[in-house]
Simulated assay, not measured.
Amino acid sequence: MKLSIPRASTLTAVRHATSTSLIAPAAAIRTFSVLNRPPPNYPGHVPLTGVERAALAIGSGLISFFNPRRADTIAAFAEVTATPYFIYRLRDAMLASPTGRQILRDRPRMTSTSLNLEYLRSLPASTVGRTYVEWLDREHVTPDTRSAVRYVEDPECAYVLQRYRESHDFYHALTGLPTVREGEVALKAFEFANTLLPMTGLSVLAAATLKPSERKRFLSTYLPWAVRNGLRSDEVINVYWEKEMETDVDELRARLGVEPPPDLREIRKREREERKRRKEAEMSGAAV
């Protein structure tokens, strides 16, 4: 049997190719510094070092906990804590759904222009679109207040988080929860059970900052509702809201497996009226 031995030039080429293949990935994944920052992966992207990411997570987390209305710090905390696992889990949930895959292909954005709010106001009262726009009007908010994702490395995952962020007001409309702190905490508990995003879990801890009566109501009523509905319902990230505007809102709730909680706005209104009556009674009694 004749043994075939590669020529020296061939062995050299193989060794060179092998060494190059080992070195190239290492160079591609090497860490960078603030003085050697790589180019952005998409418009608006800000690459972060590991130290920067950790510092931003701690700082934004503390600020968000003590001031839940700081949308900028909440957004930053959501982005730096979504990786390496949670945002990929949410992306995979979209890839597992035909509707989710279509959303990822189309990558629609939700703004006051793209949603045509005037058209939504013309829809029947029972529709998703009318329910949504009436919630916007009642809470005095617009779809244009959601900031762009900046700190997620993967462009597709960045869009997934952007989609979640822009869908937040639809979750409010679907559940009827208002934007007061008590309502936001209840909705974040629902979102945490459904999405597992760390930011939503941190927001639930803000229940500690509620008034005693609000905290008691959250623990007895809204937290059990949020856990039950968040776990059993479909992945709400897979709702193609733009295609559901003319759908009956109760039909969509039934399809997703979401039951609306007790009307928090109405409960708070009755409490205010009761406090006002008691105060007037006390004043009239003191006058006598």
Rank of each mutant, 00 (worst) to 15 (best):
L120E: 00
Y159W: 07
L22V: 13
G183L: 00
L35T: 15
W225H: 07
E52T: 06
V180I: 12
R109N: 08
E280V: 10
R278H: 08
V152D: 01
E282G: 09
K188A: 03
M1K: 14
R107E: 12
K243N: 09
V149W: 04
I29E: 10
T142A: 11
V258H: 01
E52V: 07
R232Q: 13
S220C: 06
G285K: 15
P40S: 14
F66M: 10
T179D: 07
N194C: 03
A8R: 11
I267D: 11
L136H: 00
L22W: 07
R181A: 10
A208T: 13
A96H: 08
E235A: 14
R101I: 06
I29Y: 12
A93R: 14
A226H: 04
P198N: 07
N194G: 04
E244T: 08
A148H: 13
R165F: 05
S9K: 13
M110G: 00
Y222H: 05
F77N: 04
E166K: 00
V249L: 10
T221A: 08
R165H: 06
S167M: 12
R121P: 02
R107N: 09
T10N: 07
A57R: 08
L210S: 06
E182S: 06
M245Q: 06
E182A: 06
T195W: 02
G61F: 08
V249D: 00
A55W: 15
A287Q: 14
S203I: 02
S213G: 05
Y132K: 01
P155D: 09
V133R: 01
V80R: 00
V34T: 14
I29W: 09
R268F: 07
L187V: 06
P143S: 12
E274T: 13
E52S: 09
Y159I: 08
P39Y: 13
R217C: 00
L56C: 09
F32M: 04
T10G: 05
D169N: 07
D154L: 11
D154Q: 14
L177F: 04
E251Y: 06
V239R: 01
R165N: 07
A13P: 03
V14T: 11
A287W: 10
N67W: 15
N36K: 10
A17H: 14
L187N: 02
E282N: 10
P143Q: 09
Y240H: 12
S21N: 15
A96E: 12
F218S: 03
G176L: 01
